[in-house]
Simulated assay, not measured.
Amino acid sequence: MQNQKLELLFSKTSQQPELFSEFLNQLLISDVFCIGDDSDQSNVYFQMLETPEGEQAIPFFLSLDTLRSSFGDDLDYFIMSARDFFEMTKGAVLLLNPASDYMKEFAPDEIEFLLSLGLS
């Protein structure tokens, strides 16, 4: 599924919460855009943001357009599978599409539960 379709599905979940499980299933088989540096595969660096509650969180995006419209063109970014991203960042708070019209905060226990379901 192209990420443009995934973004549309994500935006629909705000009005149709019953679509959220379909969105999560599609997310797990998609690639996401991360701010940071993965040039050294043994040591990936993720940019951190602060949530409104003051927690540190790792942002990720469904599309490059959303990343750029939220934070500009001059950021280093890389692409990885969402499942790998979730596995690699276990224990962290994650922010999907921060600073956009549709965003979602994922708590560590949500990610653990999502990965335990074995969706795909």
Rank of each mutant, 00 (worst) to 15 (best):
F10K: 02
I79M: 09
K5D: 13
R68P: 04
F78N: 05
T51L: 11
A107R: 09
N3F: 07
P59G: 04
Q4G: 12
F33M: 11
L49M: 15
S11R: 14
F85L: 11
I79R: 12
I35D: 00
F78D: 05
Q47S: 05
Q41D: 13
Q2S: 15
N25K: 15
N97A: 07
T13A: 06
L24T: 07
F113W: 11
F85Y: 10
D109L: 10
L119Y: 05
E18M: 10
G54T: 09
S14M: 05
Q2T: 15
A99G: 00
F20I: 12
I35N: 00
E7P: 01
Q4I: 15
G118E: 07
L24I: 06
M48S: 14
Q26D: 13
I111D: 02
L115Q: 06
S70V: 06
Q4C: 09
L75T: 01
F78V: 06
Y77F: 15
D38C: 07
K104H: 14
F10V: 03
G91A: 03
P17F: 03
L62C: 03
Q56H: 10
E53K: 15
F61T: 04
N3V: 12
E105V: 12
N43A: 15
P108H: 08
Q41M: 13
Q15D: 12
S100D: 08
K90I: 04
D74Q: 09
I29L: 04
Y77M: 09
Q47G: 02
E112I: 01
K5G: 12
V32I: 14
S63V: 09
D84T: 07
L8G: 10
F10T: 04
E110T: 04
T66C: 06
V32M: 02
L114M: 11
E53M: 05
G91K: 05
L119A: 11
Q56E: 14
F78C: 06
E53W: 10
S39C: 07
L64C: 03
D73M: 11
S42C: 03
S21R: 08
V93S: 07
E50I: 15
Q41A: 15
T66L: 12
F33G: 01
M48N: 13
D38L: 00
G91R: 05
S116Q: 11
M88S: 14
E105D: 02
L64H: 12
E18R: 08
D31N: 13
E55M: 04
K104S: 06
P98C: 01
F23A: 08
L95S: 10
I111C: 00
E7V: 09
G36R: 06
D73Y: 14
I29T: 11
M88G: 04
S42E: 07
F85D: 02
T89D: 07
R83G: 00
S63D: 07
L67K: 04
Q47R: 10
L75Q: 12
L19V: 02
L94K: 08
T51P: 08
F20N: 05
D65N: 14
D101A: 14
K12V: 03
T51Q: 13
D65Q: 13
M103H: 09
G36F: 02
D40E: 09
T51S: 13
S42L: 12
F33D: 05
E87D: 11
I111P: 00
N97L: 01
L6F: 06
I79D: 04
S11C: 08
Y102H: 09
Y102A: 04
E55I: 00
L6D: 03
S30N: 10
I79V: 15
P98I: 02
